[in-house]
């Protein structure tokens, strides 16, 4: 997947690139309006991460250009403003999703994958990893071809793990993914532990491999190398 990161903060852009490179995405950075305009004119991208506060112009204006020149691209708007107006305008102008700074990198990745699944209809709604298969339309999970009953939260959690496989997922990032803005108050993350525990138990009961491991002090990791 070819990704264009339109972001004026160099540190931010390089972090995003470093993270996405590990997913074997091809990443390019445009750090101001002009550069972005030029890159959009010259190359085609699958995914565009767009910061709307840009030096030299409003990112929302770039959206129009993207929509006319890069129809196949998925656009994820990144904003420092937690403003409803920006969100609404962004989505109206054709952005596919919206994320507010600061966010967790795995969260961003999960969003990118979700847009990708939604938009590329030739790809199925199935997310497959070894014996585990998730249907993002029906929210059904099968392990070794057999149905596994999961709650909505467990489904989201498993999908989050598989999309971000082999990555350290902090408890906060999991909480933010499952609970969204509500995590504001969740000073302890017992409930993350609870959900992960239940999920592991269910996968174990379905004779799946226990991929989910604990990372001391931080959180969890979906180990693809687990046996």
């Amino acid at each position: 997947m070819k990704v264009l990161i339109i972001e004026d903060s160099r540190e931010m852009a390089s972090s995003l690139r470093d993270f996405l490179l590990r997913e074997n995405y091809i990443c390019e950075i445009a750090s101001d309006y002009k550069e972005a305009e030029e890159k959009l004119f010259r190359f085609q991208y699958d995914c565009i991460l767009l910061d709307i506060m840009l030096p030299g112009g409003n990112g929302l204006k770039l959206l129009k250009q993207i929509k006319s020149e890069q129809q196949q691209a998925n656009v994820l708007v990144i904003s420092a403003k937690n403003g409803l107006e920006d969100k609404v305008t962004g989505l109206e102008e054709g952005a596919d999703d919206y994320i507010t700074k600061p966010f967790y990198l795995p969260e961003l990745h999960a969003r990118i994958r979700a847009i990708y699944r939604r938009k590329n209809l030739n790809g199925s709604n199935l997310v497959q990893f070894n014996e585990i298969s998730l249907n993002t339309n029906t929210l059904g999970v099968t392990v070794n071809g057999r149905n596994m009953e999961v709650t909505r939260k467990e489904f989201d959690l498993l999908l989050y793990f598989i999309v971000n496989k082999d990555r350290v997922l902090s408890r906060q990032s999991i909480a933010a993914h499952l609970w969204g803005d509500y995590t504001d108050d969740l000073a302890n993350f017992d409930f993350v532990y609870q959900h992960v525990k239940n999920l592991r138990k269910k996968i174990g009961a379905a004779r799946g491999i226990d991929y989910i491991g604990t990372v001391y002090g931080i959180g969890y990791k979906f180990n693809t190398s687990a046996t």
């Binding site: 540190e11 931010m12 700074k101 600061p102 350290v168």
Partner: peptide, 20 residues
């Protein structure tokens, strides 16, 4: 508060990368 969001976001990301 607006200007702080980007540095905070950068720090969080760098820590995530560090954690890996």
């Amino acid at each position: 508060s607006h200007e702080l969001q980007t540095p905070v976001a950068v720090m969080k990301m760098k820590l995530e990368l560090l954690a890996e």
